[in-house]
C-alpha cells in the first residue's frame, strides 16, 4: 500500500446543482452567487459533504471499494468553490489487525478545505 497518495478532483460549474438535487441540500449559499454574497461569502460555495465524499472516494477508489470505509472524520475549513482543482492528500498512518488508518486533507488554491481528516479502512 502506498505511504502517500495524492488525487485531484475538479468540481465543474454544475457540481453544486447536481449535489443539491442528489442530497436534498438546497441551501442557496451553494446555488446562488448573489445570495452567497449577501451573507458575506465570496460566491456560491461547495457543499462540505460533497468535498468530504471526495476525501472518502480518494481512499475507497484505491483501497477496497466503497464498503471498505469504516470511519471518516474531518474538519472543514476554507470555503470550496466550483471550477478549481482540489488536491486530496492521504498519508498512511498505521496498518494492522485488518485495517489501515490514513491522515488526509483537501486543499484548493492554497487553502485547506478539509484538515485533520482521519480515515479508517478495512483491508
Amino acid at each position: 500500500m502506498d505511504e502517500l497518495r495524492e488525487v485531484t478532483v475538479t468540481p465543474d460549474r454544475y457540481t453544486t446543482y447536481h449535489y443539491a438535487g442528489a442530497s436534498g441540500d438546497f441551501n442557496p449559499i451553494h446555488l446562488d452567487d448573489e445570495f452567497a454574497r449577501s451573507v458575506d461569502l465570496p460566491s456560491k460555495i461547495l457543499h462540505g459533504l460533497w468535498t468530504m465524499a471526495q476525501v472518502a472516494r480518494a481512499q475507497t477508489d484505491v483501497v477496497g471499494g466503497p464498503l471498505a470505509l469504516k470511519s471518516l472524520s474531518v474538519q472543514f475549513r476554507g470555503m470550496g468553490v466550483p471550477e478549481q482543482d482540489i488536491t486530496i492528500t492521504s498519508k498512511l498512518k498505521s496498518q494492522g489487525d485488518g485495517e489501515a488508518v490514513f491522515d488526509c486533507e483537501a486543499v484548493q488554491d492554497g487553502s485547506k478545505l478539509v484538515r485533520r481528516g482521519r480515515a479508517v479502512l478495512r483491508i
Binding site: 442528489a22 442530497s23 470505509l69
Partner: peptide, 30 residues
Amino acid sequence: AASIGEQSPLCHDVAAAREAGYEDVVAPPM
C-alpha cells in the same frame, strides 16, 4: 453516486451488486 463521481459497479449495477452478495445496489458510505 453520480453526483459525487463514485463509479463502483456496486453502486450502479444491480447484477454486479447481487453477484457480490448484496440484495441491490449499495449506497456509497457518504
